[in-house]
Write a protein that binds this DNA or RNA. Structure first.
Lengths: 224, 224
DNA sequence: CATACTTGATAGCTTTACTATCTTTTTAGA
DNA sequence: TCTAAAAAGATAGTAAAGCTATCAAGTATG
C-alpha cells in the first residue's frame, strides 16, 4: 500500500498548482534544497531554473515571485505540522500529554515510519526555522492575510490554543501562548546553533533541552 | 544643559562612522523613515540617496550594503535599550520590580523627558519589531557574529538573564528566558497589529495587554 | 488524429547592487 | 589665513535580479 500525503493548498498561493506536475514538484523540491543551502536572500528563480534544468519563465508560470514561493512552502509546512499534531494527539485524553506531544513536534522532526513526501522534511523544518518568519514580516502582510495565505499557521495556532484551554479553561492567553510556543521553539533552535550565548543550551546543542525549557515555560504558565 | 546620547558602536558595523558627520546622521535618520514606510525589502540605497538629496556612491562610503545598515540600526537599538534598562533599574533592589521595568521597556517606547537622538525612537522601535530579526536570520550570521555585530543584543540578553537570576538563582534557563522575552515582546506586538488572531489582544490593540501576558509568562516560570 | 495545454528557447527591459573616477567643497591644523 | 587632505558630489558603467513577452516544440486527452 502506498500512502501519499496530499495537502489541499489555497489556490491563491500559486499561479499553477505545483503538486499536479513533475515540474511543479521539482520546483518545490529544489527550492527547499537551494534555500537551505544558500539562504532565501541569495535564492533566485534563475538559479532554481538552472538547478532543475528548466527555464526562469517556466517557474514564473507556477509562482508570481520567490516570496510567494516561500509563503507556499511555509503554508505547506504549517498544514503538515497541524496534520501531525492531529495524528499524534488523537485518542489521548490527558491534555498535559497532548501538550507535551505538541512541544516535541514543534521542536524537532521525529522520524516517521511512513514516507509521505517527495522532499526531506527535516530540511524543510530547518528552512522554516531560519526563513519562516520572512513569509509574514513584510509590508504586504495585511493583503496576504486577506488572501488567507497564513491560514495554516493560524489554524495550527488555534488548535494549540484549544489544547491549552483543555488543560486549563481559565488561562487568559491561550492564543498568545500558542504563537509564542511556535516561535520560541524555532528561535531557540536557531539561537542554539548560531548565537548560542542567547540560550542555555549552547554547549550540547541538544534539542531535548529546548523541549525541557518549553515544557517548563508552558506548564508553569498554565498551572493555576 | 544639552544632553546628547552617544553610543559607542563597533567599528566593523560601518565603513565610516555615521555619527560623526551631518550626512552620516541623515543616512541613519532617513533610513529609519524609509524602512518604516516601505519595509526593508523595497528599501534601496538609490531611494535613500534620492530621499536625502545625495548620491548612492556617498552612502556606500558609510555602509557596505543595506543589510549592514540594518545591523547597524539594530545594534544601535539594542545598545540604547540596554542603556535604558540600566537607567531604569538603577537603585532598585527588588528584582521583581526590576524585571517588570524591563518588560515595560521591551514592550513599548515610553516617552522620555530628555530628547537624546536625532530620530524618532518610536519609529525605530517599530522597525525593529518588523525587521529586526532579519539582521541575524541570514546564512552569514556566524561570520557576522565573529565580528561582534550582535554584541549589543547579546549584552542586553545577558543583562536580563542576570536580573532573572537575581530573582531566582535556581532558575535553569535565564538566558533562554531572556531571549524569549525580547523576541516575544516584539512578535506579540507584530501579531497584535497584523495577524491579530494569533494573539489574545486583537480587539483592543493595547500594549499593556502584552505587558500583562509577558509578566504572567515570566513570573510563573521563575517562581520556584 | 486533432487540439489544447505545458514546457522550452530566446529576447528584452527595468531595477538593484554595486565600483570607479574625477571634480568640487568642506574641514582641520600649521 | 593658507594649505592639504578628507568628504561629498557628479557621472558613468557593469553584472545580476526580477520580471514579461513571444513563438516553437512536445505531450496529453478526448
Amino acid at each position: 500500500m502506498e500512502i501519499a500525503l496530499q495537502i489541499k493548498m489555497n489556490e491563491k498561493l500559486f499561479l499553477r498548482n505545483p503538486e499536479l506536475s513533475a515540474l511543479g514538484k521539482k520546483i518545490i523540491q529544489h527550492s527547499i534544497q537551494l534555500i537551505h543551502k544558500n539562504g532565501f536572500e541569495s535564492f533566485t528563480f534563475k538559479k532554481l531554473a538552472a538547478d532543475i534544468g528548466t527555464t526562469e519563465a517556466s517557474i514564473y508560470r507556477y509562482f508570481e515571485n520567490k516570496h510567494r514561493l516561500l509563503i507556499y512552502i511555509a503554508a505547506w509546512y504549517w498544514s503538515w505540522l497541524e496534520y501531525r499534531v492531529s495524528v499524534n494527539t488523537m485518542n489521548i485524553k490527558d491534555p498535559a500529554v497532548r501538550l507535551k506531544r505538541v512541544i516535541k513536534l514543534l521542536t524537532a522532526v521525529v522520524e516517521d515510519d511512513i514516507k509521505t513526501t517527495y522532499f526531506n522534511e527535516d530540511i524543510l523544518h530547518q528552512i522554516i526555522i531560519a526563513e519562516g518568519t520572512k513569509a509574514y514580516l513584510t509590508k504586504h502582510v495585511t493583503e496576504d492575510n486577506k488572501d488567507q495565505l497564513f491560514k495554516p499557521y493560524k489554524d495550527l495556532c488555534a488548535k494549540i490554543g484549544e489544547i491549552i484551554l483543555d488543560y486549563n479553561p481559565k488561562y487568559k492567553y491561550p492564543k498568545s501562548l500558542a504563537s509564542t510556543l511556535i516561535e520560541v521553539a524555532h528561535f531557540q533552535n536557531f539561537f542554539m546553533h548560531n548565537l548560542p550565548s542567547l540560550t542555555d543550551f549552547g554547549k550540547d546543542k541538544d534539542e531535548s533541552k529546548i523541549v525541557a525549557f518549553l515544557e517548563d515555560l508552558v506548564f508553569s504558565s498554565i498551572k493555576n
